[in-house]
Amino acid sequence: MVTAMTDTTKEKQMTDQRDSINDRVANKESESNAADNRSSMDDIHKNEEFDIEINGTVGKPFVDNVKMSSRNCDVFYGDKQAIFDVNVDIGNHEILAMIGPSGCGKSTYLRVLNRMNDTIPICRVTGEHKLDGEDIYSKKMDPVLLRARVGMVFQKPNPFPKSIYDNVAYGAKLHGLVRTRSDLDDLVEKSLIRAGLWKEVKDDLHKPGTGLSGGQQQRLCIARTIAVDPEVILMDEPTSALDPIATALIEELMIELSGKYTIAIVTHSMQQAARVSNRTAYFHLGKLVEVNETDKVFTNPEHKLTENYITGRFG
């Protein structure tokens, strides 16, 4: 099973989202196959580090100052269940990091929070999900409005095939947030400054966004997201495709942004979670195992699985 897991981590370098969804479904499959194998091979080879029962989430999943919350969250891809009964709160202006081995459902859960899973026909989400007390899956909630309020930054920088300026202006133009050209100019400038990209690109605003370096592209995507002035920003492994220097810049940016926005970040790097987040959630095979203050998770985890993961026994 350990080798199976390292195999799936190879698939970490997923090139685009569609593939990654397939992979996730495939991972689910391989896991369920693995489960069958496991029972048959029980006597020969029991993996004690990995096969520990999960009975609900341990730690402190709930907070007082709630921004977003999920109760009894299940997610299905067709017949396969990807997320099992997740209950968690995301506090106002905090950075919540989600960690766990590949295929554990953390990205899937992130996409629940702004209804990105709606774009996948076979995906079904149940449970109660709230943003500021409003049910985000209710009829009254418009996904367009929701996604303006809950922005998202993706694993691979995905600037649009437009100029830097148009990339940042995209959301504002879409939603009709600005009236005049000069307002738009201001917005673009403000967003780029906040994303720490202004100095680098201010003379090249009309060059294509795809021409920037990876780290710059990712900051452009962040600028694009904050131009709509969302309340929550979801980040799906935002630095996994970047070099360490670019990663450091993005991490600094995240901490800076947390003063104004609530941030949920999925990351593969435990160090990154430790560096930037206030709280850390550990996912395992679609279940939420433990949520605690980041310091506590990394120094004194409550659950044995969390401990095994952060000490590198698997993953």
């Binding site: 500021d132 418009d142 009709g176 002035d229």
Partner: peptide, 18 residues
């Protein structure tokens, strides 16, 4: 205030966009 500041602007355009 829990009201998102762009809510009304976005709502206003939604009908046309849909």
């Amino acid at each position: 205030s829990k009201q998102y500041k762009n809510t009304d602007t976005i709502r206003a355009g939604l009908k046309k966009r849909y």
